[in-house]
Simulated assay, not measured.
Amino acid sequence: MDFYLSEGGVRTQLPFGELDISGNEEHGYRPFQLMVSSVAGCSASVFRKILDKKKIAIDDLKISAEVERAPDEANKITDIQLHFVVKGVGLKKEQLEKSIEIARKNCSMIRTIEDSVTITETLEVINLSN
Rank of each mutant, 00 (worst) to 15 (best):
17 G>N: 13
17 G>C: 07
18 E>M: 04
18 E>T: 08
18 E>K: 05
20 D>T: 02
20 D>M: 06
21 I>H: 03
22 S>F: 08
23 G>I: 04
23 G>C: 06
24 N>C: 09
24 N>A: 06
24 N>R: 15
25 E>Y: 06
25 E>C: 01
26 E>F: 00
26 E>M: 03
26 E>C: 00
27 H>T: 08
28 G>K: 11
28 G>N: 12
28 G>Y: 12
29 Y>K: 11
29 Y>E: 15
30 R>M: 07
31 P>T: 12
32 F>I: 15
34 L>E: 14
34 L>S: 11
34 L>R: 03
35 M>P: 07
35 M>N: 11
35 M>S: 07
37 S>H: 05
37 S>P: 01
38 S>D: 15
39 V>S: 04
41 G>N: 08
42 C>Q: 01
43 S>R: 03
43 S>I: 00
43 S>Y: 01
44 A>F: 05
44 A>D: 08
45 S>Q: 13
45 S>W: 07
46 V>T: 13
46 V>C: 05
46 V>S: 01
46 V>A: 03
47 F>C: 04
47 F>W: 09
47 F>M: 03
48 R>V: 06
49 K>Y: 11
49 K>H: 11
49 K>P: 01
49 K>G: 12
50 I>L: 10
50 I>Q: 14
50 I>H: 10
51 L>G: 04
51 L>K: 13
52 D>K: 07
52 D>E: 15
52 D>G: 01
52 D>V: 05
52 D>P: 02
53 K>T: 06
54 K>Q: 12
54 K>L: 03
55 K>C: 03
55 K>N: 12
56 I>M: 06
56 I>S: 03
57 A>G: 05
57 A>S: 08
57 A>N: 09
57 A>P: 00
57 A>Y: 05
58 I>Y: 06
59 D>I: 01
59 D>M: 02
59 D>G: 12
60 D>I: 00
60 D>P: 00
60 D>R: 10
62 K>R: 11
62 K>A: 07
62 K>G: 03
63 I>R: 04
63 I>D: 00
66 E>D: 13
66 E>T: 09
67 V>G: 02
68 E>D: 15
68 E>I: 02
69 R>D: 14
70 A>T: 14
71 P>K: 10
71 P>H: 11
71 P>G: 02
73 E>H: 09
75 N>Y: 12
75 N>F: 10
